[in-house]
Design a protein around this nucleic acid. Structure first.
Lengths: 147, 147
DNA sequence: TGCCAACGTTGGCTCCGCCAACATAACAGA
DNA sequence: TCTGTTATGTTGGCGGAGCCAACGTTGGCA
Protein backbone atom coordinates (compact mmCIF):
# COMPACT_ATOMS: atom_id res chain seq x y z
CA UNK A 1 0.00 0.00 0.00
CA UNK A 2 1.05 3.57 -0.56
CA UNK A 3 1.46 4.52 3.06
CA UNK A 4 1.72 8.21 2.36
CA UNK A 5 -1.83 8.34 1.05
CA UNK A 6 -3.29 6.48 3.99
CA UNK A 7 -5.69 8.91 5.64
CA UNK A 8 -8.88 7.41 7.09
CA UNK A 9 -11.90 9.51 8.14
CA UNK A 10 -11.70 11.30 11.44
CA UNK A 11 -14.40 9.23 13.11
CA UNK A 12 -12.55 6.01 12.42
CA UNK A 13 -9.36 7.30 13.99
CA UNK A 14 -11.12 7.63 17.32
CA UNK A 15 -13.43 4.63 17.13
CA UNK A 16 -12.35 2.01 19.68
CA UNK A 17 -13.54 -0.87 17.52
CA UNK A 18 -11.48 0.45 14.63
CA UNK A 19 -8.39 0.96 16.79
CA UNK A 20 -8.77 -2.52 18.26
CA UNK A 21 -9.05 -4.00 14.81
CA UNK A 22 -5.94 -2.32 13.52
CA UNK A 23 -3.92 -3.02 16.63
CA UNK A 24 -4.98 -6.66 16.51
CA UNK A 25 -3.99 -6.84 12.86
CA UNK A 26 -0.56 -5.46 13.68
CA UNK A 27 -0.25 -7.94 16.51
CA UNK A 28 -1.28 -10.82 14.28
CA UNK A 29 1.31 -9.86 11.71
CA UNK A 30 4.05 -9.95 14.33
CA UNK A 31 2.86 -13.18 15.91
CA UNK A 32 2.32 -14.95 12.59
CA UNK A 33 5.84 -14.07 11.56
CA UNK A 34 7.09 -15.60 14.80
CA UNK A 35 5.02 -18.76 14.35
CA UNK A 36 6.11 -19.16 10.74
CA UNK A 37 9.54 -20.21 11.98
CA UNK A 38 8.03 -23.52 13.07
CA UNK A 39 5.56 -23.62 10.18
CA UNK A 40 2.52 -23.38 12.43
CA UNK A 41 -0.37 -20.98 12.89
CA UNK A 42 -2.01 -19.55 15.96
CA UNK A 43 -4.17 -22.49 16.88
CA UNK A 44 -1.25 -24.89 16.74
CA UNK A 45 0.63 -22.77 19.21
CA UNK A 46 -2.25 -22.50 21.65
CA UNK A 47 -2.87 -26.25 21.52
CA UNK A 48 0.78 -27.01 22.24
CA UNK A 49 0.68 -24.51 25.08
CA UNK A 50 -2.48 -25.98 26.58
CA UNK A 51 -1.00 -29.49 26.45
CA UNK A 52 2.19 -28.28 28.08
CA UNK A 53 0.31 -26.59 30.86
CA UNK A 54 -2.56 -29.01 31.42
CA UNK A 55 -1.19 -32.34 30.26
CA UNK A 56 -2.84 -34.78 27.84
CA UNK A 57 -6.44 -34.07 26.92
CA UNK A 58 -9.09 -35.00 24.40
CA UNK A 59 -9.67 -32.86 21.33
CA UNK A 60 -13.07 -31.80 22.61
CA UNK A 61 -11.67 -30.77 25.98
CA UNK A 62 -8.92 -28.78 24.29
CA UNK A 63 -11.46 -27.08 22.10
CA UNK A 64 -13.60 -26.07 25.06
CA UNK A 65 -10.63 -24.77 26.99
CA UNK A 66 -9.32 -22.73 24.08
CA UNK A 67 -12.53 -21.73 22.39
CA UNK A 68 -11.69 -23.60 19.19
CA UNK A 69 -14.38 -25.32 17.18
CA UNK A 70 -14.32 -29.14 17.01
CA UNK A 71 -13.89 -29.14 13.27
CA UNK A 72 -10.99 -26.70 13.36
CA UNK A 73 -9.43 -28.66 16.19
CA UNK A 74 -9.54 -31.86 14.14
CA UNK A 75 -7.54 -30.18 11.38
CA UNK A 76 -5.04 -28.56 13.75
CA UNK A 77 -4.42 -31.77 15.65
CA UNK A 78 -4.02 -33.72 12.42
CA UNK A 79 -1.32 -31.32 11.28
CA UNK A 80 0.45 -31.39 14.62
CA UNK A 81 0.41 -35.19 14.51
CA UNK A 82 1.77 -35.21 10.97
CA UNK A 83 4.66 -33.05 12.17
CA UNK A 84 5.09 -35.34 15.20
CA UNK A 85 4.66 -32.52 17.68
CA UNK A 86 1.83 -34.42 19.37
CA UNK A 87 0.70 -38.06 19.59
CA UNK A 88 -2.90 -39.24 19.33
CA UNK A 89 -4.41 -42.40 20.80
CA UNK A 90 -7.93 -43.55 21.36
CA UNK A 91 -8.83 -43.32 25.02
CA UNK A 92 -9.28 -46.91 26.26
CA UNK A 93 -11.75 -45.73 28.91
CA UNK A 94 -13.89 -43.84 26.39
CA UNK A 95 -13.29 -44.93 22.85
CA UNK A 96 -14.96 -41.85 21.43
CA UNK A 97 -12.11 -39.69 22.61
CA UNK A 98 -8.66 -39.05 21.16
CA UNK A 99 -6.11 -38.49 23.88
CA UNK A 100 -3.66 -35.88 22.64
CA UNK A 101 -0.17 -35.88 24.14
CA UNK A 102 2.74 -33.53 23.69
CA UNK A 103 5.84 -35.23 22.25
CA UNK A 104 9.39 -34.21 23.20
CA UNK A 105 9.70 -32.64 19.76
CA UNK A 106 6.48 -30.76 20.43
CA UNK A 107 7.73 -29.49 23.75
CA UNK A 108 10.95 -28.32 22.12
CA UNK A 109 9.09 -26.56 19.32
CA UNK A 110 6.81 -24.94 21.87
CA UNK A 111 9.79 -23.63 23.82
CA UNK A 112 11.20 -22.03 20.69
CA UNK A 113 7.81 -20.64 19.69
CA UNK A 114 7.14 -19.24 23.12
CA UNK A 115 10.36 -17.31 23.01
CA UNK A 116 9.61 -15.87 19.58
CA UNK A 117 6.01 -15.04 20.44
CA UNK A 118 7.04 -13.19 23.57
CA UNK A 119 9.64 -11.32 21.53
CA UNK A 120 6.93 -10.37 19.07
CA UNK A 121 5.01 -8.69 21.89
CA UNK A 122 8.06 -6.62 22.57
CA UNK A 123 8.15 -5.45 18.97
CA UNK A 124 4.49 -4.63 19.10
CA UNK A 125 4.64 -2.67 22.34
CA UNK A 126 7.84 -0.71 21.82
CA UNK A 127 5.99 2.63 21.89
CA UNK A 128 4.66 1.91 25.38
CA UNK A 129 6.32 2.06 28.78
CA UNK A 130 6.10 -0.85 31.20
CA UNK A 131 3.32 0.86 33.13
CA UNK A 132 1.41 1.57 29.96
CA UNK A 133 1.72 -2.03 28.85
CA UNK A 134 0.32 -3.22 32.12
CA UNK A 135 -2.51 -0.72 31.89
CA UNK A 136 -3.31 -1.80 28.35
CA UNK A 137 -3.44 -5.43 29.40
CA UNK A 138 -5.67 -4.53 32.31
CA UNK A 139 -8.12 -2.58 30.17
CA UNK A 140 -8.25 -5.22 27.46
CA UNK A 141 -8.83 -7.93 30.04
CA UNK A 142 -11.84 -6.10 31.39
CA UNK A 143 -13.32 -5.83 27.91
CA UNK A 144 -12.63 -9.45 27.10
CA UNK A 145 -13.99 -10.81 30.37
CA UNK A 146 -17.24 -8.93 29.96
CA UNK A 147 -20.12 -10.90 31.54
CA UNK B 1 -19.43 -23.00 23.13
CA UNK B 2 -19.61 -24.25 26.68
CA UNK B 3 -18.48 -21.06 28.34
CA UNK B 4 -17.97 -22.69 31.72
CA UNK B 5 -15.16 -24.86 30.37
CA UNK B 6 -13.34 -21.98 28.71
CA UNK B 7 -9.98 -21.78 30.46
CA UNK B 8 -7.01 -20.84 28.27
CA UNK B 9 -3.38 -21.24 29.37
CA UNK B 10 -2.00 -18.65 31.74
CA UNK B 11 0.44 -17.21 29.23
CA UNK B 12 -2.32 -16.45 26.76
CA UNK B 13 -4.35 -14.58 29.34
CA UNK B 14 -1.57 -12.05 29.71
CA UNK B 15 -0.32 -11.95 26.13
CA UNK B 16 -1.13 -8.55 24.59
CA UNK B 17 -1.52 -10.00 21.11
CA UNK B 18 -4.01 -12.51 22.45
CA UNK B 19 -5.97 -9.91 24.37
CA UNK B 20 -6.02 -7.62 21.36
CA UNK B 21 -7.30 -10.41 19.21
CA UNK B 22 -10.13 -11.31 21.54
CA UNK B 23 -11.09 -7.72 22.20
CA UNK B 24 -11.12 -7.02 18.48
CA UNK B 25 -13.29 -10.06 17.90
CA UNK B 26 -15.76 -8.82 20.50
CA UNK B 27 -15.71 -5.39 18.88
CA UNK B 28 -16.29 -6.86 15.45
CA UNK B 29 -19.25 -8.83 16.69
CA UNK B 30 -20.87 -5.67 18.05
CA UNK B 31 -20.08 -3.57 14.99
CA UNK B 32 -21.17 -6.24 12.53
CA UNK B 33 -24.48 -6.51 14.31
CA UNK B 34 -24.90 -2.75 13.95
CA UNK B 35 -23.98 -2.79 10.27
CA UNK B 36 -26.31 -5.70 9.54
CA UNK B 37 -29.26 -3.34 9.97
CA UNK B 38 -28.37 -1.77 6.63
CA UNK B 39 -27.13 -5.04 5.15
CA UNK B 40 -23.55 -3.86 4.81
CA UNK B 41 -20.18 -4.88 6.14
CA UNK B 42 -17.28 -2.91 7.53
CA UNK B 43 -15.75 -1.82 4.25
CA UNK B 44 -19.06 -0.47 3.00
CA UNK B 45 -19.37 1.68 6.07
CA UNK B 46 -15.88 3.07 5.83
CA UNK B 47 -16.32 3.88 2.14
CA UNK B 48 -19.56 5.73 2.80
CA UNK B 49 -17.87 7.59 5.62
CA UNK B 50 -14.88 8.55 3.51
CA UNK B 51 -17.13 9.84 0.74
CA UNK B 52 -19.17 11.83 3.22
CA UNK B 53 -16.09 13.39 4.71
CA UNK B 54 -13.94 13.86 1.62
CA UNK B 55 -16.41 14.11 -1.23
CA UNK B 56 -16.36 12.15 -4.50
CA UNK B 57 -13.23 10.15 -5.23
CA UNK B 58 -11.94 7.40 -7.48
CA UNK B 59 -11.90 3.81 -6.27
CA UNK B 60 -8.12 3.77 -6.18
CA UNK B 61 -7.98 6.95 -4.12
CA UNK B 62 -10.53 5.55 -1.68
CA UNK B 63 -8.54 2.38 -1.41
CA UNK B 64 -5.35 4.24 -0.60
CA UNK B 65 -7.04 6.43 1.98
CA UNK B 66 -8.70 3.51 3.74
CA UNK B 67 -6.11 0.80 3.24
CA UNK B 68 -8.44 -1.36 1.17
CA UNK B 69 -7.12 -3.41 -1.73
CA UNK B 70 -8.22 -2.46 -5.25
CA UNK B 71 -9.86 -5.80 -5.84
CA UNK B 72 -11.82 -5.66 -2.60
CA UNK B 73 -12.79 -2.07 -3.32
CA UNK B 74 -14.21 -3.07 -6.70
CA UNK B 75 -16.54 -5.56 -5.02
CA UNK B 76 -17.57 -3.20 -2.23
CA UNK B 77 -18.30 -0.34 -4.62
CA UNK B 78 -20.27 -2.65 -6.91
CA UNK B 79 -22.48 -3.67 -4.00
CA UNK B 80 -22.96 -0.10 -2.84
CA UNK B 81 -23.94 0.88 -6.37
CA UNK B 82 -26.38 -2.02 -6.63
CA UNK B 83 -28.03 -0.77 -3.44
CA UNK B 84 -27.99 2.79 -4.82
CA UNK B 85 -26.02 4.15 -1.88
CA UNK B 86 -23.37 5.51 -4.24
CA UNK B 87 -23.22 6.44 -7.92
CA UNK B 88 -20.35 5.58 -10.26
CA UNK B 89 -19.32 7.42 -13.40
CA UNK B 90 -16.26 7.34 -15.56
CA UNK B 91 -14.14 10.39 -14.94
CA UNK B 92 -14.31 12.46 -18.17
CA UNK B 93 -10.89 13.93 -17.43
CA UNK B 94 -9.28 10.49 -16.93
CA UNK B 95 -11.31 7.68 -18.35
CA UNK B 96 -9.43 5.07 -16.35
CA UNK B 97 -11.03 6.30 -13.15
CA UNK B 98 -14.47 5.70 -11.67
CA UNK B 99 -15.71 8.71 -9.78
CA UNK B 100 -17.68 7.47 -6.80
CA UNK B 101 -20.31 9.78 -5.33
CA UNK B 102 -22.52 9.44 -2.27
CA UNK B 103 -26.23 9.45 -3.10
CA UNK B 104 -28.86 10.97 -0.78
CA UNK B 105 -29.93 7.44 0.10
CA UNK B 106 -26.30 6.65 0.87
CA UNK B 107 -25.98 9.68 3.12
CA UNK B 108 -29.14 8.69 4.95
CA UNK B 109 -27.97 5.13 5.41
CA UNK B 110 -24.63 6.40 6.64
CA UNK B 111 -26.32 8.59 9.24
CA UNK B 112 -28.25 5.63 10.57
CA UNK B 113 -25.18 3.42 10.52
CA UNK B 114 -23.04 5.97 12.26
CA UNK B 115 -25.51 6.14 15.12
CA UNK B 116 -25.64 2.38 15.50
CA UNK B 117 -21.88 1.98 15.25
CA UNK B 118 -21.28 4.57 17.93
CA UNK B 119 -23.85 2.83 20.11
CA UNK B 120 -21.99 -0.43 19.57
CA UNK B 121 -18.86 1.15 21.05
CA UNK B 122 -20.85 1.94 24.14
CA UNK B 123 -21.88 -1.70 24.49
CA UNK B 124 -18.29 -2.77 24.04
CA UNK B 125 -16.82 -0.36 26.57
CA UNK B 126 -19.40 -0.61 29.34
CA UNK B 127 -16.86 -2.06 31.80
CA UNK B 128 -14.65 1.03 31.44
CA UNK B 129 -14.98 4.52 32.84
CA UNK B 130 -14.70 7.57 30.61
CA UNK B 131 -11.10 8.11 31.66
CA UNK B 132 -10.25 4.51 31.00
CA UNK B 133 -11.83 4.65 27.55
CA UNK B 134 -9.75 7.67 26.67
CA UNK B 135 -6.64 5.97 27.98
CA UNK B 136 -7.37 2.84 25.96
CA UNK B 137 -7.84 4.87 22.81
CA UNK B 138 -4.60 6.71 23.49
CA UNK B 139 -2.60 3.51 24.01
CA UNK B 140 -4.08 1.80 20.97
CA UNK B 141 -3.38 4.82 18.81
CA UNK B 142 0.28 4.75 19.78
CA UNK B 143 0.52 1.10 18.79
CA UNK B 144 -1.32 1.61 15.53
CA UNK B 145 0.67 4.66 14.51
CA UNK B 146 3.94 2.91 15.03
CA UNK B 147 6.58 4.16 12.55
C1' DT C 1 5.69 6.61 -31.70
C1' DG C 2 6.54 3.34 -28.25
C1' DC C 3 7.07 2.26 -23.56
C1' DC C 4 5.62 2.36 -18.93
C1' DA C 5 2.34 3.35 -15.11
C1' DA C 6 -2.21 3.70 -13.22
C1' DC C 7 -6.94 2.01 -13.05
C1' DG C 8 -10.68 -1.23 -12.53
C1' DT C 9 -11.89 -6.03 -12.85
C1' DT C 10 -11.72 -10.98 -12.34
C1' DG C 11 -10.06 -14.89 -10.16
C1' DG C 12 -7.58 -17.06 -6.84
C1' DC C 13 -5.36 -18.01 -2.30
C1' DT C 14 -4.94 -18.27 3.02
C1' DC C 15 -6.62 -17.63 7.67
C1' DC C 16 -10.20 -17.53 10.88
C1' DG C 17 -14.75 -18.52 12.86
C1' DC C 18 -18.79 -20.98 12.41
C1' DC C 19 -22.32 -24.51 11.21
C1' DA C 20 -24.40 -29.00 9.37
C1' DA C 21 -24.27 -33.77 8.80
C1' DC C 22 -22.54 -38.19 9.75
C1' DA C 23 -20.82 -42.63 12.08
C1' DT C 24 -19.21 -44.30 16.28
C1' DA C 25 -19.56 -44.78 21.06
C1' DA C 26 -21.30 -43.98 25.74
C1' DC C 27 -25.05 -43.39 28.65
C1' DA C 28 -29.71 -42.82 30.92
C1' DG C 29 -34.35 -44.22 31.45
C1' DA C 30 -38.24 -47.22 30.72
C1' DT D 1 -32.41 -55.26 28.05
C1' DC D 2 -33.70 -52.26 24.61
C1' DT D 3 -34.29 -47.38 23.15
C1' DG D 4 -33.52 -42.76 22.66
C1' DT D 5 -30.24 -39.14 23.70
C1' DT D 6 -25.81 -37.16 24.03
C1' DA D 7 -20.74 -36.71 23.17
C1' DT D 8 -16.88 -37.25 19.99
C1' DG D 9 -14.24 -36.80 15.93
C1' DT D 10 -14.45 -36.09 10.98
C1' DT D 11 -15.74 -34.13 6.58
C1' DG D 12 -17.49 -30.51 3.90
C1' DG D 13 -19.08 -26.08 3.36
C1' DC D 14 -19.83 -20.92 4.03
C1' DG D 15 -18.64 -15.88 4.65
C1' DG D 16 -15.55 -12.09 6.02
C1' DA D 17 -11.18 -10.22 5.47
C1' DG D 18 -6.53 -9.46 3.57
C1' DC D 19 -3.60 -10.20 -0.15
C1' DC D 20 -1.67 -11.06 -4.84
C1' DA D 21 -1.49 -12.01 -10.02
C1' DA D 22 -3.07 -11.16 -14.51
C1' DC D 23 -5.58 -8.73 -17.95
C1' DG D 24 -7.46 -4.96 -20.94
C1' DT D 25 -8.03 -0.07 -21.04
C1' DT D 26 -6.30 4.46 -20.66
C1' DG D 27 -2.79 8.27 -19.77
C1' DG D 28 1.51 10.20 -19.65
C1' DC D 29 6.25 10.53 -20.94
C1' DA D 30 10.65 10.04 -23.33
Amino acid sequence: MDERDYDPPRLLRTLPSWLLNRAAAAASAQVNAALAHERVRRHHFTVLLALSEGGPASQAALGRRLGIDRSDMAAVVAELERDELIARERDPHDRRRNVVTLTPAGAAALARLQQRVVAAQEALLTPLSADERAELARLLSRIVEQP
